[in-house]
Design a protein around this nucleic acid. Structure first.
Lengths: 220, 220
DNA sequence: AATCAAAGTATCCAACTGTATACCTTACTG
DNA sequence: CAGTAAGGTATACAGTTGGATACTTTGATT
């Protein structure tokens, strides 16, 4: 008890059975178009090249596997989408930069997008709150970046947060379109950029309307 | 062959086995949080109170059932969302009227929303193209109404269509939030209304920017 | 070198699944 | 009234699943 050591890999044993099982689960769910909870532990042990009982060495239930997969997806998304924002900062047009980098991420990690999108829109999925939290975190960090760089002149931080959240969710959902029609990447990128511009401009317009209304109320 | 009659109900036999099976499939998929393709015909026959072999009297495969369910969902959505637009026309604030009516529809048909939303975001789901078609049809009709009533002064019909499509999809996706948190209906309604206003105002702003750019290009 | 826990394997079981075949009931037909 | 077709039922079968129990391998520690 007193001489514990974590010298090994942080997750997964020598042959990384745990990680292989999670990876297999994601692959199968993405390939067969099912929810993670419908994959079946025997099937994914087969895909991972393991005996089906090895599953119980790493997880108790199927829920346990799903929770672990949620963290896996969450981590990948956090890294990927954070990189999206950073790359946007280095781009002449921040919006275009963010969209292009995001589409790169989608093409590089299709399984994460496929499974994540479906689980995000699956009521009662244990992954849904986790993914919602990821999107909110990304949106918050995005707000920080936008305000610190004065990219958009918006006073209400809450409104800016809502806009960022909507945009993040919109991009996330439209990752499927790219996977479905890889040759139409340009059109999809254009659609995303147009949506983002519309959102920010609309947000500014709403703010102007509100301040004007307040001014009128005072002057009356 | 020459003396066919369609005096019976349009779909389903005397006891409506076909419709009952579809209904059971939707209920189970909504309850268990799975895809329709993962429900299992035996399970839904049980839910419908029928022998599990009766399934084959009405459908060949599971795909056949899914296709029929797609039409069922499609029909319900078409009727429901069309009613949304019509109710908006009779309302002082068209946006608020549409949102309220839509939320009523969600509360009345939660299963359709739950299953439809998940299938819409499930890559390779046979229902996905059907649902996308439904959303596009709704958006088109919405454009007709908007232009005929001059509700929004937008020249580009294509841009208006894109905005309508985004809004429809946004409302559809956020039906889950209402089912998940029924007591927060007001907040959800406010969020939807804000989103729609932002979209239209942003669209107008984009148009103004473009025309201004064209004018500058001419005068230079 | 002996030990010990983690990871992986082999085998077994009850329950469930999709499918096939055969039978019954109902209602409408010529 | 005999016939016929659709909807529904009963039973049986092979394959798969999740889970339990017992065994072997691995690799690191003392």
């Amino acid at each position: 008890m007193s001489t514990q050591q974590a010298t090994q890999q942080e997750v997964g044993g020598p042959s990384g059975g745990k990680r292989r099982l999670i990876k297999a689960a994601l692959q199968l769910a993405a390939r067969d178009g099912t929810t993670l909870s419908a994959v079946g532990l025997r099937e994914m042990a087969r895909e991972a090249g393991l005996n089906h009982n090895t599953f119980y060495r790493h997880f108790r239930n199927a829920e346990d596997l799903i929770a672990a997969a949620a963290e896996e997806i969450s981590a990948q998304l956090m890294v990927g989408l954070k990189a999206v924002r950073q790359s946007a900062a280095r781009h002449a047009d921040a919006t275009v930069g963010a969209v292009e980098y995001f589409l790169d991420f989608v093409e590089a990690n299709p399984d994460v997008i496929i499974v994540g999108t479906r689980e995000l829109h699956s009521l009662n999925s244990p992954m849904r709150p986790v993914l919602q939290g990821v999107l909110e975190t990304i949106a918050k960090e995005s707000v920080e970046q936008i305000t610190s760089q004065n990219l958009v002149k918006l006073e209400s931080r809450e409104q800016l947060f809502q806009v960022s959240l909507d945009i993040t969710r919109y991009m996330f959902s439209h990752g499927l379109d790219l996977i479905d029609h890889p040759q139409e990447r340009e059109a999809i990128a254009a659609k995303l950029v147009a949506h983002i511009r519309r959102q920010f401009l609309g947000s500014i317009a709403v703010q102007q309307l509100e301040t004007r209304r307040q001014r009128d109320a005072i002057s009356t």
